[in-house]
C-alpha cells in the first residue's frame, strides 16, 4: 500500500479518494469542504456519491459541512495515530460515512471542537454545518483519551457527558450532529 502523503493537497485529492472511495460509495450525495490553514494548507471539496469519492479544489457550490483546521492539527488527526488510531476510517473523520451523511448539515451552525492534551496543547477543529447561520458557535471539549475512545466506539457521547469528559456550551443538537458525523 502506498504510504500516506504528508502533503494535505495530496492527502485529500489523491490518497483519501483512493483509500476511502469504496467505503464512501452510497446513494446519498454529499459535499464536504476541508480548509487547512497555514504553510502547506489549502481548501478542497470532497464529493461522495454512488460512484465513490472525488476531490478537487474548493468550488463555489455550497457544502453540507466545512472542516477548518490548521496544518498541525490536520497532521495530528489524519496522519498521526495519537488522536485517531489506525483502525479509524479517515473518510469517517470527514463526515463522509454513507449511513449518516444525509443528516450532516441538516442543522446549520458552527461547532468548535477542542481536544485537550494533544502533544501538550489543545487540538482544534472548526466545523461549519450548512451555511453556519442561526446560532452562536457551540464549543465541544473533551480530553484526548476520551476522544479516542469515542472514535474507537469504546465510549458513546451520552456516557462521556455523564462522566463529565465531554462538555459543551451552546446548542445540543449541533453537538449531536458533530458526534453523528464523527462516529457513524
Amino acid at each position: 500500500m502506498a504510504s500516506v502523503p504528508e502533503s494535505a493537497q495530496r492527502y485529500f485529492t489523491e490518497w483519501l479518494p483512493r483509500q476511502g472511495g469504496a467505503r464512501v460509495a452510497g446513494p446519498a450525495t454529499a459535499r464536504i469542504r476541508v480548509v487547512v490553514t497555514g504553510d502547506g494548507g489549502g481548501a478542497w471539496d470532497l464529493e461522495a456519491g454512488p460512484s465513490g469519492l472525488t476531490a478537487g479544489p474548493q468550488g463555489t457550490a455550497p457544502a453540507q459541512a466545512s472542516l477548518e483546521l490548521s496544518v498541525e492539527d490536520f497532521r495530528e488527526l489524519f496522519l498521526g495515530t495519537s488522536l485517531a488510531p489506525a483502525g479509524v476510517e479517515r473518510s469517517d473523520l470527514c463526515f463522509l460515512n454513507p449511513q449518516v451523511r444525509s443528516l450532516i448539515g441538516a442543522a446549520p451552525g458552527v461547532v468548535q471542537l477542542e481536544i485537550d492534551g494533544v502533544a501538550g496543547r489543545t487540538w482544534r477543529m472548526r466545523v461549519v454545518f450548512g451555511d453556519g447561520a442561526g446560532t452562536e458557535p457551540t464549543t465541544v471539549t473533551l480530553p484526548r483519551e476520551a476522544f479516542t475512545r469515542l472514535l474507537t466506539r469504546e465510549s458513546v457521547p451520552p456516557a462521556l457527558m455523564e462522566s463529565g469528559d465531554l462538555q459543551f456550551t451552546g446548542e445540543p443538537h449541533l453537538a449531536m450532529q458533530l458526534a453523528l458525523g464523527l462516529v457513524p
Binding site: 449518516v100 443528516l103 441538516a106 442543522a107 450548512g130 445540543p172 449531536m176
Partner: peptide, 10 residues
C-alpha cells in the same frame, strides 16, 4: 427540520 432530524437520529 434540521434539529428534529439530528435529535431523533441521536
Amino acid at each position: 427540520e434540521g434539529q428534529a432530524l439530528i435529535e431523533f437520529a441521536w
